[in-house]
Write a protein that binds this DNA or RNA. Structure first.
Lengths: 203, 203
DNA sequence: TTTCAATCTGACGACTGATTCATGTTGCAG
DNA sequence: CTGCAACATGAATCAGTCGTCAGATTGAAA
């Protein structure tokens, strides 16, 4: 089952070194991109010898996979905290979107690493999105059952909402770093909750 | 002004060769990814000598830029045809989303090439999206002025709507190749036009 | 037919960066 | 204190690509 590479350190010293490499890789890959980031720049940045890298990772791809997993856990934790005890799905939507945008702004390197994963290991990338989509989807279904939202294709909605978050994150948290995130989230939230059609034109 | 590289062929024979290389590059980069695609695999696929590549392009990045521009023109043309004479912005929204999804399904290589551009030449990538966002934005503003849609941040809405299209394209036109695109587009369109909040819960 | 600008070729030099490995160091269990 | 497994090193090796170039070919105008 666990194809877990048997590359895990066995002492706390090793664990620390592994972590230093992971941090450096995050900065290098996130900053310069996967192609530019070489093992030598990563190890130099981490302050360890070149060979040390191979004590804990098989390849550069390996580190990236690890970072995607890390991003997934960290983001999930962050969103859970932010959305936590929302009184309704709609309110959860609002808080979740804002929390995501803030997360992206605070972790641009991780964000970029995940996007690069798409071209390095499609499987892990898709797993990352599938996981979020699935929990998103079931949340929508539950809300629908409670009558909080209009019935509709939960699966499609989940992916559409993720698309909004990702694109707005890219545009307003990565590219335009000083945008007012609450204003952005509010505008998108308004569109999604109320719809584009004016009240006086509904059938 | 025109930094246009002076690498343009001067005869139709040259033009043809250049095109063969461009096509091969689209397949190679779209299929294996930018990093995997080497000049030699591209020229081999195109059926020309290695050196021929440099008659028309400076670098691999150069080809990718060209392909992004190409994708922009082609997609724009496609959307214009599909949305053309819609009776309303809302209707244009519906048709546009479906047309985009179909385009992605029919041109997966081009789609991927554009996404890769993000990590190769951020400038051209951003230009690509900015262009679409701008025309999207002004269309929304016009519709708003006509009272067809509720007032709101057109800029944010434009990016959010693009996010929906991109993500749904990735999920339902690239990953799940036989999804019912009209059904997907309809579901997303319904959410965006009517909103998630049920009519009986609006204040 | 001749000429020549444009086009094409593919082997090759230079270089980059991944991975290995022989050797050295660390720190804890006994 | 000592022995040993874990950890660390970086020079050397190795694979593969880029971009060049000297020479060959094409085809259309003169």
């Amino acid at each position: 089952m666990s194809k877990n590479n048997a590359l895990r350190p066995k002492t706390s010293r090793g664990e620390l070194t592994r972590q230093k490499i992971l941090d450096a890789a995050k900065r290098e890959i996130g900053g310069r991109g996967f192609a530019e980031a070489s093992i030598s720049t990563i190890t130099a940045e981490a302050g360890v010898g070149q060979g040390t890298f191979y004590l804990y990772f098989r390849t550069k791809e390996d580190v990236l996979r690890e970072l995607v997993l890390h991003m997934g856990r960290k983001l999930r934790r962050h969103l859970t905290m932010a959305v936590g005890d929302s009184p309704s799905r709609i309110e959860a939507e609002r808080r979740g979107l804002l929390a995501f945008l803030e997360f992206v702004r605070d972790n641009p390197d991780l964000y970029r690493v995940v996007e690069e994963a798409q071209f390095v290991d499609e499987t892990i990338y898709r797993q990352y999105y599938d996981d979020f989509a699935e929990s998103y989807r079931s949340a929508l279904l539950a809300a629908e059952a409670r009558g909080e939202i209009r019935p509709g294709q939960a699966e499609v909605r989940a992916w559409a909402l993720m698309g909004i978050a990702v694109m707005l994150g890219h545009r307003f948290a990565i590219w335009e770093k000083d945008a007012s995130l609450p204003r952005i989230a509010e505008a998108a939230f308004d569109m999604v909750s109320h719809g584009l059609i004016p009240d006086d034109r509904r059938g």
